[in-house]
């Protein structure tokens, strides 16, 4: 690396540091809440005034899928288009050859840890109405479980888990259909009953009676449609990253990931 490169690099670091320091100067005091934040804090889980509530104890999840639901919907669409682009350009005839993988210790541990990672992904997704988490987080963690399997036990182990490329595509599309149907059910209800309801509406609004059931008496979990729509996002994101990894590790040459071919 030459002196010129170093100077360019250091000046970029200095510029970035200056921008970050400038951004932090406007950081609000601890305990300061803006009016929009006050609205969310007051309304998200307010039993007594349910006019604007989202029925989700976790306000972040309420904002993500209820108050700002279209944002998340289009994020999902962007992710979907990304996967479709990668699959269009790079997908080849998939060969899931069984190889020896890594050492026996790594393989045994990975099989155990795989179950734990999948369980925690589901828990992070389903309990996201109460604790931090969500569909994207759970999906990324689910993808890590499959990536660990691919690295430690080779791609050829995936059929033993009832998983291959076309099945991953199918499960991803199932998640998308779940999200789509939960989005259009209020519209169908509106057309059928003649009342006002909006796409992706979760809870009743003062002028619109449609609302997904909340189950507050049965479970302490709730959120209306938030939990099923998060499960749809979980499989969509998890299978999307798994498909990407499977496509990118497809080799034309001899070597397979994780050891020699057996």
């Amino acid at each position: 690396m030459s002196l010129k490169d170093s100077i360019i690099g250091i000046s970029f670091v200095a510029l970035m540091t200056a921008i970050l320091i400038y951004a932090f100067l406007g950081y609000p005091e601890v305990g300061f809440v803006r009016p929009l934040g006050e609205f969310y804090l007051y309304n998200t889980f307010n039993f007594n005034e349910q006019g604007w509530w989202s029925a989700s104890p976790n306000a972040v999840t309420g904002v993500l899928w209820d108050y700002r639901g279209y944002d998340t919907l289009y994020e999902t669409m962007v992710f979907y288009v990304g996967i479709v682009a990668i699959a269009l350009f790079f997908e080849k005839e998939s060969s899931l050859r069984r190889t020896s993988g890594m050492t026996v210790i790594v393989r045994a541990t990975t099989k155990l840890v795989f179950v734990f990672i999948l369980t925690s992904a589901m828990a992070i997704t389903i309990f996201s109405v109460k604790t931090p988490g969500g569909g994207f987080q759970g999906g990324s963690i689910m993808a890590i479980a499959y990536i660990a399997i691919i690295i430690a036990l080779s791609r050829g182990f995936l059929p033993e888990l009832r998983m291959d490329l076309s099945k991953a595509h199918l499960i991803k599309i199932f998640g998308l259909i779940l999200i789509f149907s939960l989005t259009v059910i209020p519209v169908a209800y509106s057309l059928a009953s003649g009342t006002v309801a909006y796409a992706l509406q979760n809870q009743p609004k003062p002028w619109s009676e449609f609302g997904y059931p909340t189950f507050l008496g049965l479970y302490s979990l709730s959120g209306g449609m938030v939990i099923p729509i998060q499960v749809g996002e979980l499989v969509h994101v998890g299978m999307g990253f798994t498909i990407m990894f499977l496509i990118l590790t497809e080799r034309e040459g001899k070597k397979e990931l994780g050891g020699k071919r057996s």
């Binding site: 994207f136 987080q137 993808a143 990253f241 990894f245």
Partner: peptide, 15 residues
Amino acid sequence: ALVQVAAGVGISTAF
């Protein structure tokens, strides 16, 4: 933080 750990550390490192 969860997104950063799962996507930023796990998946991007693997890629």
